[in-house]
Design a protein around this nucleic acid. Structure first.
Length: 431
RNA sequence: GGGUCGGUAGCUUAGUUGGUAGAGUGCUCGGCUGUUAACCGGGUGGUCGCACGUUCGAGUCGUGCCCGGCCCGCCA
């Protein structure tokens, strides 16, 4: 019985007989040789067949097309002429299927690759990104579990909004209607009274009409909520989490970062340095004085301004105390200055901007009701939420990390669409 | 929602003042080679996004629509 191993393991072995299987990545044939570069989930390797030595295998191998599925046995050895430094002299070849001509060739447009995402997933680029995404999610689970957080799930069908009514996806629910989750948060605020410190990695749906390289309508948000935690505690936790994620990726995905041609030195710096925290008001001062911009107090920071701030510090930056008026109803006014809210965003450098958003949670029921009304919401829909403020209310905080934004930044990729296997945006819902 | 750029062969694209659509790549056939996104030669391949209009004549000009990329707003 043959024992098949991954290409990576075969190269680790380095000598002797190996059995591998995978898909044809490249094939070059002449009338003396066939070179097959085989791909599996771990790496690629060049395999060579000499007509003189094994004419039967040669005849079979000549017919191979890109993405044909095969298994083969042979002798592996180091060879500096091979693309990944090792080569297999093929002794046995078993073809499962000769693939039809693969539609993705050397000429590719973004649109075509998105239309063929089900096939483009196999590219070295997508594979590398997906592996990094895997590491990031795993790191998040480890980070929170090590710190005593419980995993807690919220419903995806929700009766009301948490982040603004205009961006809800409506779903028919028998004879009624509900909305897809915009956030885990309101339910998490119920969960902390049972479990204290909780977290979650889950899908989030926002019908924002944003057609940018930083927006998806369906994305994965990694959120946390903790009883007794104040703003500074949440900020510190978010910084620790991001550094923890970076360290994990640097430990586990060097090869993938290289495939993506990411500046590893830069990521190492992000994993090490302390991230500054500045207040919104100081951010404005910085923008207006050092960069001769003209941002009035009370306006949310725009992408351009966020990018400037992160560029100034050359690492992720936390901005706190945004104007209360432009923030969600659950973000509390600061006791020292009610015009400022006890909230924060973390801005990633290199133009990736907002990757984390969070806050202390308001305990002021009257104030929240006012603000909901001002947004055109019926506070009655939030009865259960306000109940939480009646039965042993405690200070608490939470934040959400945009998974695809973090993955995009770490991978250094141009579009957030590549940070998820099958992206959903305002203009793309297939395949 | 606003702005902007684009849609020509399976894919990537060129196309001048409006005058019978051209290349690369793929596929295919042949040649050659320890090949490296191999190379050389032959062949194959088009309802120029859709509709209407202007014109003797529209890929090219006009109007409307459809589809997509990016930027802004909004957000993670």
């Amino acid at each position: 019985m043959k024992k098949f191993i991954t290409i990576k393991d075969a190269m680790k072995k380095g000598t002797g007989d190996v059995h591998i299987r995978g898909w044809v990545y490249r094939q070059r044939a002449s009338n003396k040789f066939v070179f097959i570069v085989v791909r599996d989930e771990s790496d690629i390797i060049q395999c060579v067949i000499k007509k003189e030595k094994s004419p039967e295998i040669y005849e079979e191998a000549v017919k191979l097309t890109i993405e044909s599925s095969i298994e083969l046995s042979g002798v592996i050895k180091e060879d500096e002429r091979a693309p990944t430094g090792y080569e297999i002299q093929v002794k046995e070849l078993n073809i499962f299927q000769i693939a039809e001509p693969f539609p993705i060739t050397q000429d590719q447009s973004t649109e075509f690759l998105l239309d063929n995402r089900h096939l483009w997933l196999r590219s070295r680029r997508m594979t590398a990104i997906l592996k990094i995404r895997h590491t990031v999610v795993g790191a998040i689970h480890d980070f929170f579990r090590k710190r005593g957080f419980y995993e807690f799930d919220a419903p995806v069908f929700q009766p009301s909004m948490s982040e603004g009514g205009a961006t809800l996806f409506e779903v028919k629910y028998f004879k009624d209607k509900v909305y897809l989750s915009q956030s885990w948060q309101l339910y998490a605020e119920a969960g902390i009274f049972a479990l204290g410190k909780i977290y979650n990695v889950g899908p989030t749906f926002r019908a924002e009409k944003s057609k940018t390289s930083r927006h998806l309508t369906e994305f994965w948000m990694c959120e946390m909520e903790a009883a007794w935690m104040k703003l500074d505690g949440a900020v510190q936790l978010a910084k620790d989490e991001i550094r923890f994620i970076l360290k994990r990726v640097l430990r586990d995905n060097k090869q993938d970062l290289e495939i993506l041609e990411r500046d590893i030195k830069l990521l190492e710096k992000y994993a090490k340095v302390k991230y500054p925290t500045i207040k919104y008001a100081d951010a404005l001062k910085l923008l207006n004085e050092e960069y001769v911009m003209d941002v009035p107090w009370g306006k949310d920071l725009r992408t351009l301004e966020e990018a400037k701030i992160a560029e100034h510090f050359q690492c992720p930056v936390v901005v706190t105390h945004y104007p209360t008026d432009i923030m969600g109803f659950y973000k509390p006014p600061s006791p020292e200055n009610p015009k400022e809210a006890l909230c924060f965003d973390m801005l990633a450098p290199e133009g990736y901007c907002e990757i984390v958003g969070g806050s202390e949670r308001s305990l002021l029921v009257d104030n929240m009701m006012e603000r909901l009304k001002a947004e055109g919401e019926d506070p009655q829909n939030y009865d259960w939420y306000f109940d939480l403020r009646k039965y042993g209310s405690v200070p608490h905080s939470g934040y959400g990390v945009g998974l695809e934004r973090v993955v995009s930044w770490i991978c250094g990729i141009d579009s957030i669409k590549d940070a998820i296997p099958f992206p959903r945006t305002m203009l793309r819902k297939t395949p």
